[in-house]
Write a protein that binds this DNA or RNA. Structure first.
Lengths: 252, 252
DNA sequence: AGCCCCATATACTCATACAAATAAACCCGA
DNA sequence: TCGGGTTTATTTGTATGAGTATATGGGGCT
């Protein structure tokens, strides 16, 4: 994943270290990210107006051009709105595109509220079991192969390693692909990514106490068998367990 | 709604008519919209590279500044990706944020594929009944009042009038608000908006043959009564009927 | 054949000037 | 005192040109 804040180390002539936030990202992207995180963290409340373009861009040490492009990005995601004379102000929360992948990633940069995580799991519990149900009825041999492969990778690396988490995402993504429903795939991919951040966030505090592989396996078997009802039930189980783990690590 | 393509008529010193696409919109917004529609319509296939900044912006008769800001918008929605040397190319479909409100609106500008509309209804059938279920368990007096008011407005104006369709949206939005789940609200609002465009799209061909009020009323009653299971069932009915209407108008 | 370096095309950043839009102050008349 | 049109000032929006950074592909060296 190169979407998080880590710098891509190891380049050859990297020169002196830049402000690490900007590694591998254009200036407009960095500014958009920083501002986006600040807004999602509540450092700029909805309704608040940002400083003028000239002032703010100077403050950030970037050109007005780059700053404006950053604002266009945030505006496209519903975070801010600009108008002449009035200035640029943070939009009310209701207009934020909370399912935008970047927004979700930014939200998990500064520990998200417990309520928000709960809401996301509630949504998962609505969408993903239904997705599993559809997938069980529509999956092709290729889909099954992909799921099986991802499962093996998960078993091999474990969820502590990045490769293992990638395999976990691949498994869920394969299920989604099998639904043959593009909007559904887009939706759940966003949430799944966010939940991966949750996993990382979780492991900041303590190692995952439970092996999540068994529930993945039984879900896989249900989909392979082509039994929609069972697939739905198994996916529900899986998410409930993940929720329980997350709640445990959040409350302590 | 002022997000669609209609010009805001009736302004006083509106002057000579501009190219209507740009009415009430800044240049970067118009370009983003036009290009976005073109991409969603398949006029720029995924993987294709757009002409260079200088060439394309001249072709469109706008400055590079405005053009670049338009590209930033599209990039923020996952439609394109820009890199030095390579140029700007249309992203693979899997990266498009299909649930972005603008993307959905743009998709319905040039008649969307039947498959896409089916997928959206499939997603609605997953999400909205669950939302109604939650709403029935969590609704406050204020929520109920809002739903009731919207229902009255629907009855007074009918779905042929814009005011009636606005009331329809308000009704569904009130249900969503009652779920107290921000991501769920964001999701369904997008889809609901798209479905409103579907209704308009539908009525291009023939007037709606059936009065949709009865199913709204019984749904309302279930939520007022605080019966989650019944609310879920009634919402499912409502969406199935809407789907049937839409399919009818699409196939003939 | 493989690796590294370099030329080149392209987007990216910057600075500056000017245009458009709109909220707010203002003036004027009733 | 109030209403309404008009002016003004402030802020974003658009334009242009110059220069930078970066990725890619090819050419030369090992």
């Amino acid at each position: 994943m190169d979407r998080n804040g880590k710098a891509r180390t190891g380049r050859k002539g990297e020169g002196v270290l830049l402000p690490l936030a900007s590694a591998g990202r254009r200036i407009h992207g960095s500014v958009a990210r920083d501002l986006g995180i600040a807004i999602l963290a509540g450092r700029h409340a909805p309704g608040a107006v940002l400083p003028g373009e000239i002032e703010f861009s100077e403050q950030l040490g970037v050109s007005r051009t780059a700053y404006r492009e950053a604002i266009r990005i945030l505006s496209a995601k519903g975070l801010v709105e600009s108008r002449p004379k009035t200035g640029t102000r943070v939009s009310p929360r209701g207009r934020w595109n909370l399912l935008d992948p970047d927004i979700l990633a930014w939200a998990f940069e500064s520990e998200p509220s417990e309520a928000f995580v709960r809401d996301l799991f509630e949504l998962r519990l609505i969408v993903e079991p239904a997705a599993a149900e559809l997938a069980a009825g529509r999956r092709s041999g290729l889909d099954i192969a992909r799921m099986g492969h991802a499962l093996e990778e998960m078993a091999r690396h474990g969820l502590a390693a990045a490769a293992g988490r990638a395999a976990d995402q691949a498994f869920h993504h394969a299920i989604l692909e099998a639904t043959r429903n593009a909007p559904l795939i887009a939706l759940s991919s966003s949430i799944a990514a966010a939940v991966t951040w949750t996993t990382i966030f979780k492991q900041r505090r303590r190692a995952l106490p439970r092996d999540p592989l068994p529930e993945h396996r039984v879900l896989y078997e249900a989909i392979v068998a082509g039994e929609p009802a069972r697939a739905r039930a198994r996916m529900t189980d899986l998410i409930r367990l993940a929720l329980a783990d997350t709640e445990l690590s959040m409350t302590e």
